[in-house]
Every structure is written in C-alpha cells, then in structure tokens.
C-alpha cells in the first residue's frame, strides 16, 4: 500500500487512542476530586493530568494556576492546545478523510460521525457539568472505532497499520500514566491500606479499565506494586505494556517479511524484556527508571516504524 496511506491510517489510530486515554485521565482525576477526604489541593490533583500528557510547560505559558476549570478546558477543548481532545479527534478525522478510500465505508462514516457529534460539546463548560458524559462519549467512540475496524476491515496491511498505531500509542500512554501516578503516590506507600490510598490507586486502575481485573486476579487490598505488575507485565491485561507489545511485535514481523529492519529488532527486544522480565528486578532497578526507559524505547520504535514504512521518501 501507499506509504502515505499507511501513515494516515497509523496516525488516525494513534490520535483516537490518545483522545481516549486523555479522556480516561480527565475522568479519573475528576472523580478523585469528588472524594471528600482527598488530602490534596486542587492544583496537586490536576497537575498530574498535565504531566501525563506532557503539557505542563505549554499550559504554564497561558495560565496562572492549575484549577480544575483551567486544566479541563485546556486538555479537553482548547483549540490552541495541539494535544487537546478536540485537536486529537480533529486530527484523527483529517487523517481519515485523507485516506477514506483505504478503509471501509463503515469505518470512515464512524469517524466522520464522531466529528459531527463532537460539535454538541463545543461551547459547553465541561468543568461545571457534563465532563463525565463527555469522557464517556470519547471512550465509547474509541471503542466503536476499534470495533468497526475489527469487524469490517480486510486483514491486510491497512488493518495492520491501524492496529500498530493503536498499540504504540497505548503503550506510551499507559507507561506515562503509571509513571506519573507511581511517582506521586509512592510516599504514601507506608500507609498502604488507608482510605485515600485506596481511592487513588483504584482511580489509577479505573483509568485503564483494570479495577475489576485487579479484584478478580488478586482479590486483596490494592497494593501499588501489584498495580504496577498488572499494568507492566500481565499480558492478559489489555492495556498493559506487555499486551501492547504482544500486538506490535507480530504485526512488525508480518509487515517486514524477510527484511531485516531496525523496528522489528527493537520491538522484539522490548517485547522480550516484558515477556521474560521479573517485577522484582524492575523494582530493584527502580520503576521510574524502567518506565522512562520504556517510554524512550517506545518513542524510538515509533520513529523507526515511521522511517521503515511511512515516510514518503522511504522507498526511494
């Protein structure tokens, strides 16, 4: 298929996934702000949402404080913030529109309908009311997107690039979320079992749809290291790093065929670390170090995928 087409499909999927994860972070942060005994200030609560998406610096330029209203608007609706949900969904739709030929009409119409529906939220003050509905809507549209791709697309390269985009982005987002949260919550580790701690960690779990999974697997109080294990090493947990690489590696094997290319090797290396790694060793190395290494490696992997398949000059 055309490199440009592959590029658009890949980024379309990345942007949808990014919007979903941003909605998850907003939703969970908002829910935490409703917990009465949350010991933290408004700023301490909302700053991490900016940190997870790497937006603190840009936000600081325009704002004086980390108020709920400011952060929510900035991350959800701000047309000047390239990584707001508004702009990521818009980019997803523009990428889709550029290659509507390469996807099924159901897939295209789904994304187009998403964009048309978005207009109902424009102008709403989400911080005042409607944030939960908005976040639910973004998540539901993202589920619908994956479903329509899965249910209607031919299992060809186009499908592979869509899936690739989804899982590269998801791996990045999960790693960032865990890194920021773990880092912040670590000091309270000694008081494991406290009510606040429970809310905070259950919020993290909920933000990646892992709360029920945690209960089912461990049926015990929520312990930070188990949360980390769930989101890093468990391959049966669909938003874990391991699960993401389980998807990425075979897709790259299949796309590259017999060609020996760097992105295939990188994915294999990263995959092996998750597949054969032990949580104990990861903690010994330091979870934060592990996660930031992972984020860098995943970025590098993305760049290599770009170089091998997607850039217009690739095959000349």
């Amino acid at each position: 298929m055309l490199s440009r087409t592959a590029d658009h499909l890949y980024w379309m999927a990345r942007y949808i996934e990014r919007a979903e994860n941003m909605a998850r972070v907003l939703d969970v942060t908002y829910n935490m702000s409703l917990v009465p005994n949350a010991a933290v200030s408004e700023a301490a609560l909302w700053l991490p949402a900016l940190e997870i998406s790497g937006n603190v610096e840009a936000y600081d330029h325009e704002h004086d404080d980390y108020s709920a209203a400011g952060v929510i608007h900035y991350l959800a609706m701000d047309i000047d913030n390239p990584s707001s949900i508004y702009n990521t969904l818009r980019s997803a739709r523009e990428n889709a529109r550029a290659v509507r030929v390469a996807m099924t009409s159901e897939t295209w119409e789904n994304i187009n309908a998403l964009w048309l529906e978005f207009s109902q939220f424009i102008g709403q003050d989400l911080a005042k009311h409607g944030l939960t509905e908005f976040c639910d809507w973004v998540k539901a549209r993202s589920h619908l997107f994956r479903g329509v791709c899965f249910g209607t697309m031919l299992r060809d390269d186009a499908f592979s690039f869509v899936r690739l985009g989804t899982f590269i982005e998801r791996a990045d987002n999960t790693a960032r979320l865990l890194d920021v949260k773990y880092h912040l919550l670590l000091p309270s580790q000694e008081e494991v079992g406290g009510a606040v701690d429970y809310y905070e960690w259950s919020a993290v779990l909920r933000s990646v749809s892992a709360f029920q999974a945690y209960q089912k697997i461990f049926s015990d109080t929520i312990a930070p290291w188990r949360v980390a294990e769930l989101l890093v090493l468990r391959r049966d947990m669909p938003r874990s790093l391991h699960a993401c690489l389980d998807e990425v590696t075979p897709i790259l094997e299949q796309l590259s065929g017999l060609r020996q290319i760097e992105c295939k090797r990188l994915a294999g290396e990263l995959h092996a670390k998750l597949r054969f790694g032990k949580m104990q060793d990861i903690f010994q190395q330091g979870l934060h170090e592990f996660l930031s290494d992972f984020i860098d490696a995943n970025n590098y992997l993305g760049a290599e995928i770009q170089r091998a398949f997607l850039s217009v000059t690739a095959s000349q």
Binding site: L2, S3, T313, S315
Partner: peptide
C-alpha cells in the same frame, strides 16, 4: 512508480 510500504 508509487511509493508503497513494500517499496516502489
């Protein structure tokens, strides 16, 4: 030629 993911 067109530029594709599998070469020209």
């Amino acid at each position: 030629f067109m530029r594709t993911t599998q070469g020209p």
